[in-house]
Amino acid sequence: MKTEKEKMLAGELYDALDPQLSKERTRTRLLLKALNDSREDQDEERARILEKLLPQAGEGLWIQPPFYCDYGSNIVTGEKVFFNFNCVVLDVMQISIGSRTLFGPNVQIYTATHPMNYKERASGLEFAKPIVIGEDVWVGGSAVICPGITIGDRSVIGAGSVVTKDIPADVFAAGNPCRVIRPVSPDTKHEV
């Protein structure tokens, strides 16, 4: 028989109030409190906290507090990933983020979701879908990335966008719902 954590990581309906999961989230909240309360001049302390909070992070991860997540252990990053102020990452399932990807302030990344059927939803069970964000992606401030989304390498997501469908590589996409606006050329310089 599967544990609730095994169900969660498999994308099946699971009980988020399970004691093991609650204990893991409490551990994460305590690490987040320490990170978010740390001072700008405490680089070594922040690095120590981030190693515990995000054990699958690549070199050069930079998180500008405050930062919030569910578990931290389900966030996998490449090198030199940057999260600006006030990002929220609901990492109930794995979130893979490629190297040199940048997140503006207030970006929200959600793997967690609830059943559409009200009877299933009323049971208190929930589930999740993984998210994949490629390398060299820029996600503008206050964008929301919904469960199950893939964003291709080198794409740019406009500020305030709500990403409800996959976005291919090498495009600028924006809006609610987010849609491809135009291709982005590797030769483009200093364009906004």
Rank of each mutant, 00 (worst) to 15 (best):
K2M: 12
K2C: 06
K2Q: 11
T3D: 03
E4S: 08
M8W: 07
L9H: 01
A10Y: 07
E12F: 07
E12M: 10
L13V: 07
D15T: 02
L17H: 04
P19G: 07
Q20D: 08
E24M: 04
R27C: 00
A34C: 05
L35S: 06
D41A: 08
Q42I: 11
L53D: 11
L53E: 07
L54W: 05
P55H: 10
A57F: 09
E59R: 13
E59Q: 14
L61Q: 02
W62I: 12
I63H: 07
P65T: 15
P65Q: 11
F67Q: 04
F67E: 01
C69Q: 01
D70M: 11
G72I: 09
S73W: 13
N74G: 00
G78Q: 10
G78F: 11
E79I: 15
E79N: 14
K80W: 13
K80G: 08
V81P: 07
F82Y: 15
F82S: 13
F82H: 13
N84K: 12
N84G: 08
C87P: 06
V89Q: 02
L90P: 00
L90A: 09
D91T: 05
V92L: 11
Q94C: 02
I95Y: 04
I97E: 01
R100V: 00
T101G: 07
T101V: 06
T101K: 06
T101C: 13
L102P: 00
P105F: 09
N106S: 08
N106C: 08
Q108F: 01
Q108L: 09
Q108M: 13
Q108I: 11
I109K: 05
I109V: 12
T113G: 09
P115S: 09
M116S: 12
K119H: 07
E120C: 01
E120S: 02
R121P: 00
A122I: 05
A122G: 05
S123M: 09
L125N: 03
L125G: 01
A128K: 10
P130C: 11
P130W: 15
P130S: 15
I131W: 08
V132F: 14
I133E: 04
W138C: 12
W138V: 10
V139Q: 08
G140L: 15
G141R: 10
G141H: 09
G141P: 06
G141E: 09
I145E: 08
G148I: 11
I149N: 01
T150L: 03
G152N: 01
D153Q: 03
R154I: 12
R154D: 14
S155Y: 05
S155G: 08
S155V: 12
V156Y: 01
V156K: 06
I157N: 03
A159T: 12
A159S: 13
S161P: 10
S161V: 05
S161K: 05
V163H: 13
K165C: 12
P168K: 05
A169K: 08
D170S: 07
A173E: 01
A174R: 06
P177T: 09
C178T: 04
C178R: 02
R179V: 05
P183E: 13
S185T: 12
D187L: 11
D187F: 12
H190T: 10
V192W: 14
V192Q: 14
